[in-house]
Design a protein around this nucleic acid. Structure first.
Length: 265
DNA sequence: AAGTTCGTCAACCGCCGATAC
DNA sequence: AGTATCGGCGGTTGACGAACT
């Protein structure tokens, strides 16, 4: 006999989260924290499985999350860490406070990977790509496979554990901004007011989740002042003028992107 | 203006190690 | 000791908006 199932998968909602669901989850977690995700949806009054709640919280609702594009420094760090760690996004995310593995993974797949390819860098091996081959003749229709790429430089696990991880805020440390303060925070930064400190206990009843009036809770995208932050992006990075740090400058020092986002060497 | 293609990203899926029973 | 679930992770999907034709 093992543990109880996470969820019965029957009658559970899937797909995009609604504002009301977000409100319920945030209200519950900010009030109670979480001891096990399985009971969170039940206590919070959500028709979701615990796994879905955990994902929503860690990837979107967590108050310590940064939103917006990665900064130049963050991007460079992601590239460096990826060269060392490979697709271990959670390890990479641990080095970037306020960023999630999902966010970094998406950014890598949609932005960085493309840029590296344009530069002739293999995003997997971080080595120069093979130059484009001439059309194959009949004789070499089946060329020998290329030699296997060298494995990415691995960071020693022991060394990694010795290093101090980025101080992400634990659920029991999260402070809940009062709705009014949250609205104010939306215009400044993602800092939250130390109005209350959470306990990880989940012994209280679900009724306490209604302590935060749903009708007064701000829109989740704005509740922590997430949007509009760090909207720097590649335009500032590649335009040339006034660029101090280029994540790729250790690949090609005499190259840049033009206005059409085309790599110029 | 309408249709199509492309880019982005939130969310799901499935696997794995740890662990409760 | 064996079994089944939890929590976490990485890969993938699909909805949606923007850009293009």
């Amino acid at each position: 006999m093992g543990r109880q199932p996470c969820c019965d998968k029957v009658g559970l909602k899937k797909g995009p989260w609604t504002a009301e669901e977000d409100q319920k989850l945030v209200a519950f977690l900010l009030t109670h924290g979480h001891c096990c995700w399985r009971v969170v949806p039940k206590l919070a009054g959500l028709l979701r499985c615990g796994k879905s709640c955990r994902l929503r919280w860690t990837n979107y609702l967590r108050p310590d999350l940064k939103r917006g594009l990665l900064s130049d420094d963050e991007e460079r760090l992601v590239i460096d860490l990826h060269a060392q760690l490979g697709n271990r996004w959670s390890k990479i995310a641990a080095r970037l406070p306020g960023r999630t593995d999902n966010e970094i993974k998406n950014h890598w797949n949609t932005h960085i990977k493309k840029k590296l390819r344009k530069m002739g860098i293999d995003p997997v091996t971080h080595q120069p790509l093979e130059p484009p081959r001439p059309p194959p003749r009949e004789q070499d229709a089946t060329p020998p496979p290329p030699p296997p790429p060298p494995p990415p430089q691995e960071i020693e696990e022991s060394e990694e554990e010795e290093q101090e991880p980025s101080p992400l805020i634990e659920p029991h440390e999260i402070t809940a901004p009062p709705p009014a303060a949250a609205a104010e925070a939306a215009t400044s930064n993602c800092s939250v007011s130390p109005a209350s400190v959470l306990s990880p206990s989940c012994s209280s009843s679900a009724s306490a989740a209604s302590a935060v009036d749903v009708a007064e809770w701000p829109e989740p995208m704005y509740m922590f002042g997430m949007d509009g932050i760090m909207d720097v992006g590649w335009n500032g990075l590649i335009s040339g003028a006034g660029v101090d740090v280029d994540p790729f400058d250790h690949y090609y020092h005499d190259a840049s992107f033009d206005d059409q986002d085309v790599w110029i060497i």
